[in-house]
Amino acid sequence: MFKRGTLVVVAFVLAVLLTACGGAPAAPAAPAATDAPVAAEPFKVAVVMPSTETDLAWSQAMIDALRSIQAEMGGEAAMQISISENMFNVTDAAAALRDYASAGNQLVIAHGTQYGTSMFEVARDFPEVSFAWGTATDTGEAEGFTNVFSYNASAEEGGYVNGVIAAMLSTSNVVGIVGPVEAGDAKAYIDGFEQGVLSVKPDSTVNKTYTGSFGDTAAAAEAASTHIAAGADVLTGSAQQVVGAIGVAKERGALWLGTQSSQASLAPDIVVATQLYDWTGVLKDIIAKIQAGTLGGTAYDLTLENGGLKIVFNSAFPGVTPEMQAAVDTAIQGISSGVITVLP
């Protein structure tokens, strides 16, 4: 019974296939690149990201920045944002990037390092569209790309400052780190954090664990429980999984230092401070450059010095002392002026 059905469908597939092969080369006509944005036309930006826009971490930091710029520019009429979230499959992400590029977006953001290879391939085919990707430092200039921006976050800097705060808050002199996968941005943050703790209290214990996943909330929760059982009274962690760890820390009264997005809303009593990735500066600069006709070539780096990384204290948390504030300021100044070197 099915075989004949199969044959019909196979015939259909082949027919469509032939049509596709015949029709394809003519398909994507490149629009004129020189069109200056008319005031009536909204600025169109699209973003492809690996987790959800409500992850309180990596993806949300980008969306929050885009939305705040949108509000500043005058809402939907001035700026149009398209989002593809949960793009953990890189092939799907590649398709999304290509689609957004051909759909008239002026800026296409590949918000995940794993999208780099696909992004460059698409960028080569759409020289009139501007691309941005991160965290990365490569704009492809060496290969002749002029339409790619890259952005990186020196996560180790804020990690260091968070470490200073953690060391000053800890009474047990044991701090715990709930890491995702031991690589990239997360590793940089964690290494910086450890250096920060040891700079204040060289004899304190810094316990590190990794869950082996960016999104495993339950595993992060268990890691946090283990840290607390091992005596840690201040915790930190990275990636979207940390909401699980924060939930446990709140329950057990351990303090938390955040990174990427502000996590204070989740647990106002225990989140002391967050290293905020503020992409607004970078994005505004990129948009200004695009509107001025420059489509790429800049490698941005969020640092404490340029204000892309911000240490934001949670105003609802009562335990911040003036000494702590002073130590944080000293650390930020030290890092900015190069007196303190943080190794990623």
Binding site: G215, A218, V243, G247, E251
Partner: peptide, 12 residues
């Protein structure tokens, strides 16, 4: 155990 809900929180 965790006291939060997040999308796909069971993770396998």
């Amino acid at each position: 155990a965790v006291n939060i809900f997040q999308e796909n929180m069971t993770g396998g």
